[in-house]
């Protein structure tokens, strides 16, 4: 056999090394928290359905519905909104539904707990009313967030005359969070794999992870700027306005909102 094909001597020595056990729970916890943040940002991809209205209409009307819900003094308006929220939730993909149910349920429970003194004082209806309102408002926010692509949602901010520079900053920040989050996860996995045996330097390595991320962010920012300049970026950012032409669902949702306003005013005694 030629010399190049033989296994080197040091490789053939049997390994007697048994590394000492060490707790690495803080690396695992860090990885878990980064992964869960990434999961939330990437949940459902913010896909809009075939019959979804445009993002600006969704944003404006959902804010309007939350305001109507908050201002309503009787429960009937809230119950009508609850019907809308539940029907929309019933058609969400299951992971998104679980997310909405968890957040809205937690908000309702918190509101009910805060209103427990009212229950003790013999006014349970107040606690229930506030809990249902919290559930409805949180449900509306979560459903809009989970059914709208992030880019369209930030683009919809133009409806409120927010400057394109702010929208571009938010867009770039969201993309950077996801990319740097993935980078942080890879770095933590590499750190965990390299931490064999008892290693007291693990905790100080976190500073290194942070530093590596900072360098990566700086390099990525420069690359992004160069790429945008190469593609003809002159400083104006349309925020995805081209993809927001009106849809038939917009008219339907606006009409439904108009009916809600009329109902609310009738129940409040204004009409």
């Amino acid at each position: 056999m030629p010399d190049a094909a033989k296994i080197p001597g040091w490789l053939a020595v049997p390994q007697d090394y048994e590394p000492r056990s060490d707790r690495s729970s803080f690396i695992a916890k860090s990885m878990l928290s980064v992964a869960s943040v990434l999961r939330q940002l990437r949940l459902d991809g913010g896909r809009s359905g075939r019959f979804s209205p445009t993002a600006p209409v969704k944003l404006v009307l959902s804010l309007g519905a939350i305001i109507v819900n908050s201002l309503a003094t009787n429960l009937m308006t809230t119950l009508v909104l609850l019907a809308f929220v539940l029907v929309r939730a019933a058609f969400l993909p299951r992971p998104a539904l679980a997310h909405v149910a968890a957040m809205a349920g937690a908000a309702a429970l918190l509101a009910f707990v805060l209103m427990l003194p009212a229950v003790v004082l013999g006014q349970p209806a107040s606690a229930v009313r506030l809990a249902v309102k919290a559930l409805v408002s949180t449900g509306i926010v979560m459903e809009v967030a989970l059914t709208t692509p992030a880019g369209e949602l930030t683009g919809a901010l133009r409806t409120f005359h927010i400057s394109n520079l702010v929208i571009m900053t938010i867009d770039l920040a969201l993309r950077a969070i996801v990319r740097l989050g993935e980078c942080a996860l890879e770095t933590l996995i590499a750190l965990d794999l390299r931490s064999v045996g008892r290693d007291h330097g693990k905790r100080t390595s976190m500073g290194g992870v942070g530093g590596a991320l900072l360098v990566r962010a700086s390099v990525a920012a420069g690359d992004t700027h160069d790429a945008m300049r190469c593609r003809g970026f002159e400083g104006t950012y349309d925020g995805g306005a081209r993809s927001m032409s009106p849809r038939a669902a917009d008219a339907l949702l606006i009409a439904a909102f108009g009916l809600l306003i009329a109902l609310s005013l009738y129940l409040e005694g204004v009409l």
Binding site: L79, A83, L86, A89, A101
Partner: peptide
């Protein structure tokens, strides 16, 4: 009916 059905499906 809408609320009841939606709750059951959810």
């Amino acid at each position: 009916a809408i609320i009841g059905v939606a709750l059951l499906v959810i």
